[in-house]
Write a protein that binds this DNA or RNA. Sequence first.
DNA 1: ATAATAAGGTCAGGGAAAGTCAGAAAGCCT
DNA 2: AGGCTTTCTGACTTTCCCTGACCTTATTAT
Lengths: 152, 152
Amino acid sequence: MSLTLADAIERHILAQLAAAGEIAIQRVELARQYGCAPSQINYVLATRFTPERGFLTESRRGGGGYIRVRRAAQPELGRIAAALRAAPDGIAQAPAHALIARCREAGLLRDREAAMLQALTRREAIGLPLPLRDMVRARCLAAALLALSDER
Amino acid sequence: MSLTLADAIERHILAQLAAAGEIAIQRVELARQYGCAPSQINYVLATRFTPERGFLTESRRGGGGYIRVRRAAQPELGRIAAALRAAPDGIAQAPAHALIARCREAGLLRDREAAMLQALTRREAIGLPLPLRDMVRARCLAAALLALSDER
DNA sequence: ATAATAAGGTCAGGGAAAGTCAGAAAGCCT
DNA sequence: AGGCTTTCTGACTTTCCCTGACCTTATTAT
């Protein structure tokens, strides 16, 4: 039952999130409340509020800066993106296209979105020699799906 | 929702612009309304109302001076794709993002599509050293936009 | 013409956030 | 105790906001 600082901050954020659906926190202010270093907030966000777990964060620096946290609209896409990023060899064209097709059939992607992704994951579009090409394809696809997991 | 001064002024101008299509502001007067330095107006214009985002500004100094702001003409997807493929050095991240944002504002891209493209044209997503990265970005973006011009 | 006045432009710099990352500290296993 | 993992911090970096001092240009008064 040892409740670490990170756990406490996690609960704090989860509670706020349950109440509001989307929250904006001031990193330095939250750190002050818990009497810790600001970077601790980053640690909590990085370890607990990841896309794999269905969360999204965005931030702005400078005066009036903030960190916004919300639940992903489609956590499925976040998990697929995470798997793609974890693939050590990237992904070849055929499996990528199959994946995109499955997502479309599952209703995670619309026709236009699927068409765009099919087009830009073709080898001619990437235009690199092979060990690299599959890596770039995986990274770009992952980034795209992750971004979509947020939207509407 | 921490709204900075720059954000507030941006909204002010956007609102005026939506109402009129083209506006002329007095820098010193607008600064007075918001209780800030006149150069703050320049900051807002320089960071938010750039040509890359589809705005045009012109100004006159001296007595009866003004700053005029209006929207630039809309781009077309097919043309953009062609231009991208013709660019010998590819395209850097900032102009690419500005281009995508502009297409969204012009109604050529939906929110989800724009979010996707923004994400996958980020340098971390592509993850290549620099001469190459801009090339790949341009090719992928061109392929995606071209695919869309077929859809509908 | 010249001087005064009334605009807007530019730029360096300070301050206010948030991000990054190496490494210390604390837990948790055998 | 020793080793692995997780937590946590501090120093440094990057990004963004905002101002003040100084410069350029246009109009108006003398």
